[in-house]
Design a protein around this nucleic acid. Sequence first.
DNA 1: CGTGCCGGGTT
DNA 2: AACCCGGCACG
Length: 412
Amino acid sequence: MTFTFQSEDLKRDSSKKLSQQHLFSLAMEEDVKTADTKKPNRVLDHEKENTRSVCLLEQKRKVVSSNIDVPPARKSSEELDMDKVTAAMVLTSLSTSPLVRSPPVRPNEGLSGSWKEGGCVPSSSSSSGYWSWSAPSDQSNPSTPSPPLSADSFKPFRTQAQPDDGIDESEASNLLFDEPIPRKRKNSMKVMFKCLWKNCGKVLSTAAGIQKHIRTIHLGRVGDSDYSDGEEDFYYTEIKLNTDSVADGLGSPAPVSPSQSLASPSTFSTSDSSRTETCAKTETKLMTPLSRSAPTTLYLVHTDHAYQATPPVTIPGSAKFTPNGSSFSISWQSPPVTFTGIPVSPTHNHLMGTGEQRQHTHTVLSSPPRGTVSLRKPRGEGKKCRKVYGMENRDMWCTACRWKKACQRFTD
DNA sequence: CGTGCCGGGTT
DNA sequence: AACCCGGCACG
């Protein structure tokens, strides 16, 4: 769209840099605003636009930074600052992730890639600006360093996680637990990306990470690990898990922390299929006994476009005792709406025989035998998307629900 | 009153 | 189709 014109503009006149930045922040602000109005409106669109424009702008910025010589005069503080940041980033990424060196921008990981470079941007508000990226929706004004307030304004998932993405699995999973609750939202959700590949329960905290994982491990794209044709999208899904309610649920000096039950981070090191297996197993072991009794690590997966309705939560192995992914999971988590699915992308899991796990066996859980044929449907008592996700997350509902049709995800 | 969803409308 | 919504029954 306006992109071409803008970048051209840039090249032509480097002195416009500032105004460009201005433009940038303006754009951000606008997006934020729209996203903030969340209420019952189509946030999704905004979000899409948002991310897209972010992408564009990111690219733009790169152009800027590469094409423009910063006059020596201003080089002092800004540049120094920037250098510090850059250096720090380089160091961290070097020390933690030997694997990842993200070249330019690639289609899928473009976002995360650019996040990293966000630090290098000669923005006037150097450091603070850089951090505020992570959640554009939190602050409408980039110049205010105010701490991100809980903000119901949040959009459930800003596509990719934090600025530290793309780091690498090992780091990613550790990071997750180190990082002291990035933004405290309603119930401190954690967005994770789970590999759906058979027998692989790998969970990473970044989309980039999981994509890479899939690419290298499952798709066998070793050499050109940077190349992404988007196929990975099919093999992972986003999950959200709630750290708060976990603690609540155990309600005591709980011996099991979410982190432990999720996956043992300690073992993460490099990509190796055997390792992934073990990880999956650990997960299973931990999950199984717990999930029978009380909610521990609450998470639920969903794959968006929903007629594939809640495909198995697929914790490999645990599926066995799970009569039905959806109704099972909701049943033990009522008031604190803890987990929610996340639309990653309009992809479908052809991987898991979608249908099979769903319906049947249902009867076990659902209401006692009802003899009456009833003229009108008894109205299933289970919570439907609307209840589960709430109005503000309408975009997470199954399509049917969005259209006010009979819910396809939580059938009864 | 909120929710689930039928029936019917629009794109 | 895909999408949206008025309106009604149910709780």
